[in-house]
Design a protein around this nucleic acid. Structure first.
Lengths: 373, 373
DNA sequence: CTGTTAGCGCCTTCAA
DNA sequence: TTGAAGGCGCTAACAG
């Protein structure tokens, strides 16, 4: 009985090593229950006592143990975020947004990245489960089916991008790739491009497929034939973009425009084109996807299709909260995409001469309306 | 007595909601202690029982509750990482390295970013403390003094970059800015540059100051005078780089080379120079700092001073582990930096004519040895 | 080598 | 309104 007390009162007052709710209670001469209630802002606490408690807390520089709190309350206050690759600038921008929104809603976040590796994805999920996250956003833009079940079985709220089960407790953020990509293709078509190549993302990635499909469909809508030789597979990295452009350059005929599955790819392509001594957009037009920050300052600035990170983040947290509060069981959220025209797109080669404008060789001004950086 | 058992056995076998160590124990007909031992790979468990336990675990799809485990064992298995800004590509690359090394060592990581805001820094620290991280790496390249104390008081192992207290339980990673920056300045001097500007980082950031000092010192060593008008303050962002270059362009006289406190700044500068219609490196040479991935594919590829993320990450985890194991009380780790020459640096304007080489106008080849991308 | 038991730090019924 | 007491799920002594 006194045993426990003795254990804690052996040392002098300066024992910051063990600093628990009991220490505070003793210091403020109240019970631990009162301290707990004070901390959790239970309104029924006497103002005087509360003040004493807060003083003790400040004096001792005490703060609660999240682990213990979570264990007993069942609430970890954690929202999980799984992304594919943290070194692709798109994701940090997404993480930033997700964290901001989560914090606004009183949550902290736990981040894991899969590096496109199913094994790591499995670990990520396990980690989320073990740490008892209250909900998890799987923003990898594609996920292996069997892994979903692991999560679904635990009936912990989830939100996916593009594709996910329609089981209760899970929502999905449907990105409208077609809208933005069609704008891009139409933009190119309007400039006079007919020979348009596409550097895709990794084939197994769902969102990469969707982008390719949207491209193909848009081309059709514009009455342009799709030459299979101009579909080359990238992997959403700089290196992949460079390699893809090399293949394109080695082909029989060069396209006049290249659309890319993401901006990293586009930047790689941009670089390879520069290496090849071709000019952008005079010799080749390029369009990216994502509209990362960096797109504004590439040389020339990259025309890209924007997918709002903040919108994605906000929708994800909203969905998770809806599940947590039982407001919603399953829902789809639509995320829009749209074209941002900069300076990597212009008339196809030959068109300028045809229009008697061959003197214009500087990417800074062209016939299309441009967005200032 | 039977009360507890009744509570858990009310439902049918299909109650995945409550899935604790007891369920597993019952399922495998062993005590919870044996289950615990099995999970923790205590070697003294009977192979037969262990097998039964693992089967039960698999069948029930059970996994331990990290919170409870941490609470009782006192080990959270968490290493904290505080960075300043997740949208600056340097940091994701650092995070990636830190995570990899942490995982190699059996730890998970908890990330927080401060966005250079002291208030957020305070929150980050509190968060690390509350979540009971076993050690934290403060990689913000500068921190307010009072905050350190909060951490130091808890005597939780810490590691800082550049500057930190020399109290026991904390180590510091001393980056040798001077080595790399001197290489950079010497490189420029060797090419014939005398008019070298510097775009610094935010003044209050310690590492930014160190970089500026290293620059100033190196200039001295080369016998070059430092013109104060050519020191302009940036903020380590793209936008800051653009603004800084604008200031430089508006000055009375243009430098022939610009050194930047980080790569994001350099990319901003690169962009502004492009906008101004000047050529790199023919009209202006540029050197960055950090050597982020993107530096390889800027146009032209950026000469930069590399600071290895992996080396930083590895040293940080090593330091933390040393503290955790009591091997070390305080130590400084030296992190080297060195120049990576690419194509954004060349002879100052006029030098080529002087050398009768005025025909060379293409950034792809120049008289200095270049690293292939 | 296995099982029983006492907490880890906290929240949350219950009486008072 | 406050305090006492019983767990949350797990590990780590301690007996057997």
């Amino acid at each position: 009985m006194a045993n426990k007390k003795n254990k804690r009162s052996t040392g002098s007052l300066k024992k910051p090593a063990l600093m628990d709710i009991r220490t505070v209670a003793e210091h403020a001469s109240v019970s631990i229950a009162t301290v707990s209630r004070t901390i959790n802002h239970v309104p029924t606490v006497n103002a005087k006592m509360a003040k004493r408690v807060w003083e003790a807390i400040r004096e001792l520089n005490y703060f609660p143990n999240t682990q213990a709190r979570a264990l007993v309350s069942g609430r970890s206050g954690l929202l999980g975020l799984i992304v594919s690759e943290i070194t692709n600038p798109f994701f940090p921008e997404l993480i930033q947004g997700f964290e901001d929104v989560a914090v606004e809603n009183g949550y902290e976040i736990l981040i894991s990245s899969t590096n496109y590796d199913p094994k790591r994805m499995s670990l990520c999920i396990r980690r989320m489960l073990e740490r008892k996250t209250e909900g998890v956003a799987v923003m990898t833009f594609g996920i292996e089916e069997p892994l979903l079940e692991q999560l679904a079985e635990r009936n912990i709220p989830m939100v996916f991008v593009d594709v996910g089960p329609d089981s209760p407790g899970t929502s999905v953020l449907k990105v409208d790739y077609h809208h933005g990509i069609r704008q891009g293709v139409q933009h190119l078509a309007a400039l006079g491009h007919r020979d348009i190549a596409f550097v895709s993302g990794p084939a197994r990635l769902h969102s990469a497929q969707s982008r390719l499909n949207a491209f193909s469909k848009s081309l059709n809508e514009c009455g342009i034939a799709l030459d299979p030789a101009w579909i080359v597979e990238g992997d959403h990295t700089l290196e992949g973009g460079i390699l893809a452009m090399e293949k394109l350059l080695a082909g029989d005929k060069l396209p006049t425009a290249v659309m890319c599955s993401n901006d990293m790819t586009a930047i790689g392509v941009l670089h390879k084109v520069y290496r090849a001594g071709l000019r952008i957009p005079d010799d080749l037009s390029i369009i990216g996807f994502d509209d990362i920050q960096m797109a504004r300052v590439t040389i020339p600035p990259l025309t890209s299709i924007q997918m709002s990170r903040l919108e994605l983040a906000r929708a994800a947290v909203t969905a998770l909260r809806a599940h947590l509060e039982g407001t919603e069981t399953h829902r789809e959220y639509k995320i829009d995409t749209h074209l941002v025209v900069r300076e990597s797109t212009g008339y196809p080669p030959g068109a300028m001469e045809h229009l008697q404008q061959s003197g214009q060789r500087n990417g800074q001004d062209s016939a299309v309306k441009r967005k200032k950086v």
